[in-house]
């Protein structure tokens, strides 16, 4: 059985991608999935060689045939998203693809068209196969695209017989986060001892709890505020989430990123050995019976 772990953070910029890519370079038998489709950064470190590109279709979009349209205006009144203007044109940014207008149009003038909302890539990297994506600008379906990337990763794991899928998740608590954690075996939440980091840790751990997924915590940049680090430790204890790593505020992630390497490839220092030790622990949870 393939085991899946998603690295999330609630708040952006806590070091999620630094840690998930370091894990990818430490794992033996791994497929990497970049599910932060809205701000996909992992490829900058993984340097994937793209093997296959698939079109991703999100929600459909309504299209009105002017030759059939009798300007009755029924569609305009029926669209709840204000996507059809008085001129009977469809605003593609507002249309949520519900198909109500197609259903109500008495003249069959409306068809629902597929709309390409991005690309899904399957690639090879120096650490193993990788699934990633590019979301079109302003597209709605980022949750669906996350699921498409995860499907591609699962397929890769089968094809190459890999035991582990490491998923770099998106920030926030909404649809793309939910799509990136449903059905995984373990979640690692990367946080930082700032008021925002703590607040978002609380919210995202509620999401994880809501979906009943076991969660571990990593406190990054811990020495920026020792007092807050202790508060996070208390919070995790009360929620029964184990803290598996406490990493210092350090230049290493930035320096490694500048040369396109993971922190463990880049240097052997306190920071990278902290990440190494954390991966050892995480593996134990991930493969526990």
């Amino acid at each position: 059985m393939t085991r899946q772990i998603t690295v999330i953070s609630g708040k952006g910029g806590t070091g999620k991608t630094t840690i998930s890519s370091a894990f990818a370079s430490l794992a033996d038998d791994v497929v990497i999935a970049d599910c932060d489709v809205d701000a996909a950064d992992m490829h900058l470190i993984m340097a994937p060689e793209i093997l296959e590109t698939k079109d991703f279709y999100g929600l459909k979009v309504a299209s009105i045939d002017p030759d059939l349209c009798t300007a009755c205006g029924i569609c305009e009144r029926s669209c709840r998203f204000g996507a059809i203007g008085p001129d009977l044109h469809v605003d593609v940014y507002r249309c949520e693809g519900c198909a109500v207008c197609e259903y109500v149009c008495p003249s069959d003038a409306i068809t629902m068209l597929d709309r390409k909302a991005g690309d899904v890539f399957t690639s090879m990297t120096r650490f193993g196969p990788m699934a990633h994506a590019r979301l079109g600008i302003g597209e709605e379906a980022s949750g669906k695209l996350v699921s498409a990337v995860r499907d591609a990763a699962t397929e890769l794991a089968l094809r190459y017989n890999k035991s582990t899928i490491i998923i770099d998740g998106p920030p926030g608590t909404g649809c793309s986060v939910i799509a990136s954690i449903t059905g995984v075996d373990l979640v690692l939440i990367v946080t930082e001892p700032t008021v925002s980091g703590m607040h978002d840790l609380e919210r995202v751990s509620e999401v994880v709890e809501h979906f009943r997924i076991p969660a571990l915590v990593c406190i990054n940049k811990s020495n920026i505020n020792e007092q807050n680090t202790n508060r996070i430790l208390d919070h995790c204890r009360s929620r029964q989430m184990d803290v598996v790593g406490i990493l210092p505020y350090d230049r290493t992630p930035t320096d490694a990123m500048l040369v396109g390497k993971t922190v463990v490839e880049y240097v052997d220092n306190d920071f990278s050995s902290g990440v190494r030790a954390m991966w050892e622990k995480v593996q134990k949870y991930l493969f526990a019976e």
Partner: peptide
């Protein structure tokens, strides 16, 4: 604004 480039940002 929220981060990213998807629909909530728009």
């Amino acid at each position: 604004s929220p981060p990213g480039t998807a629909c909530p940002v728009i």
